[in-house]
Design a protein around this nucleic acid. Sequence first.
DNA 1: GTTCGACTCGTACGGTGTTCGATTCCACTC
DNA 2: GAGTGGAATCGAACACCGTACGAGTCGAAC
Lengths: 268, 268
Amino acid sequence: MYYRIYAWSVKQHFSSVWTREPRTAKSPGLDRAQIVREAMALLDAEGLDALSMRRLGARLGSGATSIYWHVANKDELLELALDEVYGELTVLDARETTWRDSASSFAYSMRQMLFSHPWVINLVGTVPGIGPNAILLMTRLAATFDHAGFRGLDQDYAASTLMAYVAGITMPEISWRTMMGRTGLGSNELNAALHPLVEKAAAGHPELAARYAEFREIDVETTRALNFEFGLTCLLDGLEARLNRAASAPAPASADPGATPPPRPGLQ
Amino acid sequence: MYYRIYAWSVKQHFSSVWTREPRTAKSPGLDRAQIVREAMALLDAEGLDALSMRRLGARLGSGATSIYWHVANKDELLELALDEVYGELTVLDARETTWRDSASSFAYSMRQMLFSHPWVINLVGTVPGIGPNAILLMTRLAATFDHAGFRGLDQDYAASTLMAYVAGITMPEISWRTMMGRTGLGSNELNAALHPLVEKAAAGHPELAARYAEFREIDVETTRALNFEFGLTCLLDGLEARLNRAASAPAPASADPGATPPPRPGLQ
DNA sequence: GTTCGACTCGTACGGTGTTCGATTCCACTC
DNA sequence: GAGTGGAATCGAACACCGTACGAGTCGAAC
């Protein structure tokens, strides 16, 4: 899960799958693509903890350690899998729609992706996101916000704000779904089953307890969807307000070109 | 890291530290509070992976398995530690300031807390957040947004949107800091050291490469801070816009009282 | 036919969380 | 003071984990 540091020449060097030359791929046996594919299948089906090199090897019909010929270590494998899912994200070309539609549809596709691959949320931020698909995604997002009218650093700020919201808001949804899978309960069944526990926790806070009491009867899925929509709308409204403000006052506030370029060297 | 399911009576039952009676605490030796304190020290100093029961036991001057008398398992221990850090979060009383100041200062205190305890970000969403401190925090946040004028579900939506943004935007900052700690480099040194890698990744995307080239010279810390401020302002602006809209049109849009209460049984 | 690189894999090392049973210790009763 | 029972500790063991290492297999080139 960590960056590894090699002594190469004299200087420290940060390693990533994408900075190494891959092994020659002429072999008839194992294959990097196949390894990644099978790893993702295991991850999707059973989660991050379930992926072990031994289990993956078994699934591939090979020894666990054979994998290490094609991939330096488990972290590199996860880097590859992560970039694979970045490839699933779609960004509508902002020139063919509004920037709001482009940003909004991206947010929904990211949410959908995180549902399909719940393990991703635990990797974002710990595994470097500088694979080809991640890079491609970033250029497209940048284009969307450029088309919206954001200039300089604000373009990056807007994109990272959007991604941060989606990642953050989806996190509890994912853990909810994981729990559903583990218990075999439906959303509303799980809500009902969890209620006594919540009730006990909220005892002593009457106003919270009263609120939670209402929650027992709701439809969880639609409420979550409304929650997502709510925050997304707020965020886009806020971005739009900033654009309007900048349009009326030509000198942008937060982009001081003399002092600062931005910090994000890739999707972290 | 998972909810455990016990057969209690006939019904399935979800366990959490907070639903069990704690062991009697009359012993002179180990002590739950002491265990949690030492675990947090280890977590803060060396991260989530560094916390093992054996190392914790060594640190406590006891056998690793002695801990299991006071705590059911490692997950419960993490639940306890997580609730402890929730206690560090401050929410200004909205009646004494504006709701914007209250929300904003909460966001900053959450960011600060995540910096002090980087391991928390990997726990939020996987460990149930229904401890006393988490509950207290939620009532205070609810009060803030109630004071702002949010009613019904919108109150929860607003709170979870804010927390989602802070968690999401802070995630890459945390991994950046972790990397700084591991390499011993300062922010700008790390930025410079990472640049060749980023440059290589962006090759083939001239507009992105040009952008990244600028990034090499920036001050990372201030840029990140500006990024946080940018997104937070957008979000609060968006919330405010919604309040104004609701004020002019008395029937709120997203809170349909006939269909839905909300889904969040505690901070996940 | 030999050689050499690509590739596979069994074994081993040092770790992990947790169970179990044996053990120690102490406050209490008789 | 002897005895008892529960609280608390802990060593050993189990089934895993990631991966380093070296021996082995195989196919193509010479």
